[in-house]
Simulated scan of single mutants.
Amino acid sequence: MNILMVDDEKIIREGIKRTLANRFPQYRVFLAAGPEEAVVRLRSERIDIVLTDILMPGMSGLEMMNLTAASYPCVKWVVISAHSEFSYAQEAVRLGAKDYLLKPIGKEVLIEMIEKLGAEIAREKELTEEAELLRVNQKFLREAVFQRWASGLDIGRIDMKPFMDSHPYFHLIMVKMESEKIVHLEHFIIENVLTELIGRYGTGFVAIQDNKSLLGLVTLNEGVALAALLEELRGHLIKYLRIPFQIMHSERIEDSNAIPAEVQRMRQASSTQVYEHYASGGDQAVEVAQQYIRTHYHADLSLEKVSSIVYLNPVYFSQLFKQKTGSGFKEYVIGLRMDQAKKLLLNPKLKLADIAERIGYQDIRHFSQLFRKKFGETPSEFRQKQDNGVTKEPI
């Protein structure tokens, strides 16, 4: 039997592992410091019991439990908490937890619980192991074949007609992420949320397209609108994901042979569609970037440089910046520099070369061209009008 212990406190993880290893040397005990490590273990090992702390950075144990229910229905969950609040215990029971333990956990209580769950798991395995193996294998085979077919790749002599007979009409839903890092947890979240919603709104399945995108197929129940599913999907992803994402979908499809072309269309559309991001994080990133630009307008302000300051991908940062400010990044920087140039031009002691350098330009000609493009006159013409006491426009 395999047991997974999830807790951000190392001393607790190690302590529980020692207790279980001494009493149950035949069991394998895996450790995870948080939900992301836990997801990797759940995917790579056949876990029977998960002991999870409730309060952890990033995602709570209850949220992780809720998200994994559809994919790992046979896992026995035990929730551990330092808080005796009834609401936590109530939510844990609602989600199907087998037990709710309070810290510090007594060794005898822990051993007794594992013995009880071990006997329960042994009985269930005898009844379900063969059926579960067949179900999982069919699921992976179906997804692998559908993934190749949807991507326009060769599937040999496999006939997709029997496969698609249960879906005479359907919609496709593609979710694509934007991240520089490997996204195990986010990938897992999308797969589980979309699978659950498809099951609630109709019938279908989810297939992994690549390490940054997933494709769902759904035949909606009578009277159900796709917009309702998409709205709920977006709400869940905004809540749980911490990276930008896109949601694309097809119209109703009645010819399954149209799938490869439709998938290709959505992939092309993703290159121009703005990525979504949880609102507070997006606003904060742009505010930090604007503050950095205001204090470093005289230095190198490339898109790559500023996006790295707020830890965002340059393409996504550019889209987000325009969405939040109404101006493109380059346009915003030039506007800020030109406004500063106007103020400096009021000082007759400063040469144009000095002003250009102070706002980040080494080339006077380039500076003059940008100034004229924005204000309709050269820096020299602007300065001369100020010297003559004529103000063309308020500064």
Rank of each mutant, 00 (worst) to 15 (best):
I359F: 04
D165I: 05
I155K: 10
I355W: 02
G152E: 11
T195N: 14
P162W: 09
P244F: 15
T128I: 13
N192G: 11
D165L: 11
D159C: 07
G328F: 02
T195F: 14
V274K: 06
P104L: 10
E108W: 06
K76A: 09
L352P: 00
Y278N: 14
D154N: 09
D165Q: 15
F205K: 08
Q323D: 13
V145E: 07
F163C: 07
A356Q: 02
H296I: 07
L141Q: 09
I182T: 15
K239C: 03
H296C: 03
N2Q: 13
K385R: 13
V333I: 11
K116Q: 13
Q340L: 12
Y27H: 10
M65Q: 01
E143G: 04
M174I: 01
I12H: 08
V390E: 15
K76L: 03
I111R: 01
G216N: 06
S87I: 13
V29K: 05
K125G: 11
A279T: 09
R365N: 06
V79I: 14
L31S: 11
L346M: 11
G281C: 08
V224G: 00
E304G: 04
V175T: 13
L197D: 09
S327H: 15
V390N: 10
L101N: 02
I247D: 03
T128M: 13
F371M: 05
Y275G: 02
E91F: 02
A150N: 01
K392W: 10
F367D: 02
G204V: 03
F382D: 07
R372D: 08
A299T: 10
L301G: 04
A119Q: 14
V6G: 05
Q90T: 08
A353L: 04
E254Y: 03
G326I: 09
A285Y: 11
V333S: 00
M59F: 09
E276T: 09
K239W: 04
A289Q: 07
G61Y: 03
E196Y: 15
L233F: 03
A150V: 02
L172T: 03
E36V: 08
K374V: 06
M64Q: 04
Q290P: 00
R43M: 08
N313M: 02
